[in-house]
Write a protein that binds this DNA or RNA. Structure first.
Lengths: 228, 228
DNA sequence: TCGTATTGACTGGACAGTCAGTCGATTCGA
DNA sequence: TCGAATCGACTGACTGTCCAGTCAATACGA
């Protein structure tokens, strides 16, 4: 038996196509997910380039052969793991945000998710790794663009909701506000992740900005949300 | 003759001390600078982890032995090159900014330098590499903190000048404004570098923000500076 | 029993770092 | 003034290490 016969490809390949044979093994998909879960945490902790196949195998409690059995190569595991990381958090974010009624609270939550929680969980570190790669690799740039645009849409919807609810300033331009907010959050998240400021300071700065520049004049003042 | 006898150490070592024997060879210092100059450009183009000693040697038109003759190891070259890159640009920035009288123009120039020119020259890519490293390596984090604080001071001085000149809004808090501006610029610079938006769009967004939120009410309107 | 999943020893390539030796310049001694 | 001795910069072949990827053998599950 030639063990190099590979299970059907389910990873997004560099050409952007995505093959997902749903008829085959749940087991297999589960195993693959387990590997990706383990791998993105390794990337967060050690960095993309310092993550060895051996590390992944050890963290999964398996052998290097198994990793190669499920993925065509190391690069494929690492890239798929970064993507998996964002797919996961994207879904979680949207789910959580949708439970919050008030657009101001929801926007504050957006800040907390990106600037505090993602920095804490290591997802922020994975973003940073991804961006550093995107500078150099066009394929990563494309994947990143797609994933980022999902996040962008999430934030855009919160802004529109705020205007609909009449709790955001009406003299703001949507594109300007969205662009500024996203850049501000990216900058703060990056600094929090890279240890250039505390997560709490980053959060407070962003919330203060929202209150000054986005929330409509008489905000329901005082302690809307206990300082985490 | 044992060629492994090393020229006196002039690189900042990880313990933070900096030894600079000024009495010895100009030649030597020049050569070392040449290597660093070449190296940071390689880092910008290929990334920290994809830069081989062989690449550096080839780009210098020399042999790998020579690189090892001047530096204790590959890591030392790469780290010193990142630092060199920022030392250089820091000096250049300050020199250029100090020639601009009007604080508003000077602040716009700050934006253009960080968001357009550094992204274009590759220095932005080096920043991004550095930040990705800072997430993982405490020593890099320290070096980064020191270098970033110099940049921060530069921007802070521009803000103070604006208030002194009476051309910036007086209802702003210095720390808030500085922190927001820096995060915004970092975010935009990162996105421009990672190819998530054009440099021109990043520049315009930042300048628009300045005009809305920082510059005092009646700014000398219309075409202060031709769109690059 | 047959096919699938898993193992881990092995291979080959890449690359950092070493070191014996070359070469041109400079100093020194007669 | 000239040859020999010395020196420091530089070279590039070589070595050892690390690691991704392979594959024959094996365990497992239906």
């Amino acid at each position: 038996m030639d063990a190099s016969a590979r299970p059907p490809e389910t990873v997004r390949r560099t050409d952007g196509t995505r093959v997902e044979p749903s008829d085959i093994g749940r087991r297999e998909a589960a195993k693959r997910r387990e590997i990706l879960e383990v791998t993105w945490r390794l990337i967060a902790a050690r960095g993309y380039h310092n993550t060895r196949v051996q590390d992944i195998a050890a963290a999964c409690g398996t052998s290097t052969g198994t990793i190669h059995y499920y993925f065509p190569g190391k690069g494929a595991v690492l890239d798929a793991a970064m993507e998996y990381c964002f797919d996961q958090t994207g879904a979680r974010q949207q789910a959580e945000l949708s439970t919050i009624e008030d657009a101001r609270e929801r926007l504050v939550r957006v800040v907390e998710i990106q600037v505090q929680e993602e920095a804490e969980s290591g997802q922020g570190a994975v973003w940073l790794q991804l961006w550093a790669q995107a500078t150099l690799r066009p394929d990563v740039r494309d994947v990143n663009a797609e994933m980022y645009s999902r996040w962008e849409e999430t934030v855009r919807r919160v802004l529109r909701r705020g205007w609909r609810q009449g709790v955001f300033r009406t003299d703001l331009d949507e594109e300007q506000t969205l662009g500024t907010l996203l850049a501000l959050l990216d900058g703060l998240a990056m600094k929090a992740t890279a240890g250039m400021m505390t997560r709490a300071a980053a959060r407070d700065l962003a919330v203060a900005w929202l209150q000054r520049e986005v929330f409509a004049a008489p905000p329901p003042r005082r302690a809307r949300r206990p300082r985490s």
